[in-house]
Simulated assay, not measured.
Amino acid sequence: MPRLDAITLKQLRTLNAVASQGSLTAAAAKIGQTIPAIHSQIKNLERAIGMPVLLRPPVSGRMELTAEGTEMLLAAKRIEGILSMAGDQIRARASGKIGHVTISVVSTSKYFAPNLVRILSLGDAEVRIALRVGNRESVISDLDEGRCDLAIMGRPPRVPMVQSIPLGAHPHGVILPPDHPFAQEDGFDPALLVQETFISREEGSGTRVLMQRFFDRFEEGPVAHIVEMESNETIKQAVRAGLGIALLSLHTVHEELEQGRLALLRGPGLPIVRHWYLVWPAQVERSIAAKRIAESIDALSGTFLPGAVSG
């Protein structure tokens, strides 16, 4: 039977170092330990759980985790996340606050999240608020590993278990250079649209999936030519330069559309409306500060979203 009471934080941190570096030697250099010390920590961890945590390559190559090692690594990351959050809470209280709240947001929301934090901070000076920005995968990891109190994202994940409330509409549309022929029309021909060069985020990104679903509705088939770019900002500049067109969150191009620097494709099925959600782990008791900030965000009724009409 596993002896979980024999597992130490040092053992888990050593496992994390080996998993990230791929070898005992590299792990020792990373955390400033000797190779025998690293080996000893791993052996003690394996004795405690009664199973190997690493698959050692026969000659050379990267060490990989066993299924048990993967479970221990996830536990290590969750513990580190909880400890980091505890440190934030202690520092906030030491400075006279009632608590600290970390909000993790997907990168698309960076167009409104900083302003939201400003609104929240002005409305509740007793809570210190921090913002983490990443892709959907990293936000889900933050929720799973205890690195955030709240998250703002699109569709809530199935794993980990979360609770959520809708914050407001999140429209997506096809953006064009202002002088594009489609910009002057009130509709579009799908057969012509699929022949356009589309500039898109990487495979698996939220907007890429949404674009593929949009074109699945047409008999003409998928887009003929896709150029991948790494950020919404780069995509916007590429569209303005006439390199192609793109399906993007309209919250990322709100100013450009208002100022006429970009145009919007009009026609059936557009814009595509999704929703923003406020999300938090279902199985973790929220702090008083986190509950207060969540209630404040909910009370704003989405007025912080680009293009929203307040009051």
Score class of each variant (00 low, 15 high):
Asp5Met: 09
Ile7Thr: 07
Thr8Leu: 09
Ala19Ile: 10
Ala26Trp: 07
Ala28Pro: 06
Ile31Phe: 03
Gln33Phe: 10
Gln33Gly: 04
Ile35Glu: 13
Ile38Gly: 04
Pro52Trp: 06
Pro57Met: 14
Pro58Met: 08
Glu64Trp: 11
Thr66His: 08
Thr70His: 12
Leu74Glu: 07
Leu74Val: 00
Gly81Ala: 12
Gly81Thr: 08
Leu83Ile: 13
Gly87Pro: 11
Gly87Glu: 15
Ile90His: 15
Arg91Ile: 01
Arg91Val: 12
Ile98Trp: 03
His100Gly: 09
His100Asn: 15
Ile103Ser: 01
Ser104Leu: 02
Phe112Asn: 01
Pro114Lys: 07
Asn115Cys: 08
Val117Met: 11
Gly123Pro: 00
Arg136Glu: 08
Gly146Val: 03
Ile152Ser: 04
Pro160Trp: 08
His170Ile: 06
Pro177Leu: 06
Ala183Asp: 08
Glu185Leu: 11
Gly187His: 02
Gln195Met: 07
Phe214Tyr: 10
Lys236Gln: 15
Ala241Thr: 10
Gly244Met: 10
Ile245Ser: 01
Leu247Ala: 06
Leu248Asp: 01
Thr252Pro: 11
Val253Leu: 10
Gly260His: 05
Arg266His: 10
Arg274Asp: 08
Gln283Lys: 01
Glu285Lys: 08
Ala289Ile: 12
Ala294Met: 10
Gly307Arg: 09
Ser310Gln: 04
Gly311Phe: 04
